Amino acid sequence: MDQLSTPTAETEKVSQTKPEDAYVRFDRVQKSYDGETLVVKDLNLDIAKGEFITLLGPSGSGKTTCLMMLAGFEPATHGEIFLDGRPINNVPPHKREIGMVFQNYALFPHMTVWENLAFPLQVRKLPKSDIEKKIGRALDMVQMSQFGGRRPAQLSGGQQQRIALARALVFEPQLVLMDEPLGALDKQLREHMQYEIKHIHENLGVTVVYVTHDQSEALTMSDRVAVFNDGVIQQLSTPDVLYEEPENSFVAQFIGENNKLTGTVKSLGNDGLCQVEIEGGHVVEALAVAVDQVGAPTTLSLRPERVEINPDEGATANRLEGRIEELIYLGDHIRTRMSVAGHDDFIVKVPNTHGHKIIKEGETAMVGWASQDCRALDPMPL
């Protein structure tokens, strides 16, 4: 269990944005609710102006706590948070000029849509003519112009979320925070709203900090994704790098579907590759990502779409025999569950194309993959 401590100079900087260019900056931020256990541990994170960054992780990983500290609803225990170069730890939430969108919409039920949008502008004492213009623009932006006279109870969940988004943007903040905003919507509507929010962000150029536990949502919408676990950022990368090049076993397992094979490092080459002995005495070649010595335990990470069934002889560096246990038709691909090297849940995604090779349940088949597609990472905890 991590105890509360003073941040050290050795704390690693998790950022690709230069500090002087950061619009939002967490500088060695810690958070504890009981004075002993750290929920957020020495967070260093720089967010560029206009960036869409997602804080992604399982429940209890610290991502929402970071958002609440940035909003001002929770104080930081240690460290400093900066907004546009100024420290904001002691600035109350209503003076930070930050837009907020919540999962439960947080609309005033006794007010009409128009009145909900007017409220943040009236608080700022804007002239009536300006208020009307800004509300009109905000409603147009979320395609809800004809609903200004309705109350929230007269709207669907998706419509309420559009209004909540419009209210967060109506006073033209430079920073918008979104806490699981699509969590209450059904799958189809949620996916549609992902693209809407992404396009609104692109059009307005505001800075967005988005919290979710849905990895596909994070990959769809974000410029960068910070993967949290146990109060620490495990990896901060663009969506493609996060998926293609996970730096540890937690990220590999949390992001997308992943085959994991446990083994022991037998040799390390000068070309960045290593030989790993897995169950059954099989030896496979992989990228040495998080291993640095012979004899070390490792977990191999391999994406299902990178595996080929019955590859041509010599086409792949790694070849193993397996048994086809289950075929599931999913339209664009056939999800093939196999038993390979003692693992009964080895998954291969076979593209549903006219030229794909016919396979059947119960058959024995070879599976193959390139060394560069297999990553030798830290051993998964038992």
Rank of each mutant, 00 (worst) to 15 (best):
306 R>E: 04
174 Q>F: 05
241 V>F: 03
112 T>R: 09
225 V>F: 07
7 P>H: 12
123 V>R: 13
210 Y>H: 14
73 F>R: 13
14 V>L: 14
149 G>N: 03
213 H>T: 08
209 V>H: 06
51 E>I: 12
57 G>E: 08
55 L>N: 01
199 H>E: 14
35 G>W: 09
184 A>V: 13
35 G>N: 11
362 G>V: 13
324 I>Q: 12
115 E>H: 12
286 A>I: 04
77 T>L: 07
60 G>C: 09
17 T>Q: 12
23 Y>Q: 03
347 I>F: 11
201 H>R: 05
292 D>S: 13
292 D>K: 13
127 P>E: 08
192 H>D: 13
81 I>S: 01
107 L>D: 02
293 Q>T: 13
78 H>M: 12
250 F>W: 04
325 E>I: 14
154 Q>S: 13
260 K>H: 11
358 I>D: 14
29 V>W: 03
85 G>H: 15
99 G>S: 14
293 Q>K: 14
286 A>C: 03
306 R>C: 06
156 S>E: 01
320 L>G: 07
342 G>L: 11
3 Q>G: 09
54 T>C: 11
112 T>I: 08
191 E>N: 15
264 T>S: 02
240 D>S: 12
38 L>A: 04
312 D>K: 14
244 E>C: 04
304 P>S: 03
63 K>T: 02
253 Q>L: 04
230 D>S: 15
201 H>T: 02
79 G>Y: 07
302 L>M: 10
39 V>E: 00
11 T>A: 12
227 V>H: 05
335 R>M: 13
206 V>T: 06
382 L>Q: 15
202 E>T: 13
20 E>K: 15
285 E>W: 04
214 D>S: 10
70 L>F: 04
227 V>W: 00
110 H>C: 11
40 V>C: 15
135 I>Y: 01
110 H>P: 10
36 E>Q: 14
41 K>T: 07
36 E>L: 14
343 H>C: 05
55 L>G: 00
71 A>N: 06
45 L>K: 00
295 G>C: 11
60 G>D: 07
59 S>R: 10
190 R>I: 03
298 T>N: 06
333 H>P: 04
98 I>D: 05
277 E>K: 03
15 S>W: 11
331 G>C: 08
237 S>K: 01
375 R>W: 10
29 V>M: 02
279 E>S: 08
299 T>W: 07
177 L>H: 02
258 N>C: 05
198 K>P: 01
121 L>H: 05
170 V>D: 07
215 Q>F: 02
128 K>G: 09
311 P>Q: 06
295 G>P: 06
265 V>R: 00
86 R>D: 09
16 Q>V: 09
6 T>N: 13
330 L>S: 07
3 Q>I: 10
57 G>Y: 04
301 S>R: 01
355 G>S: 15
246 P>T: 06
282 H>N: 12
11 T>D: 11
302 L>D: 00
11 T>P: 01
313 E>L: 15
228 F>T: 01
194 Q>D: 01
19 P>D: 15
153 A>I: 11
375 R>L: 08
106 A>R: 09
130 D>P: 09
310 N>T: 09
323 R>N: 06
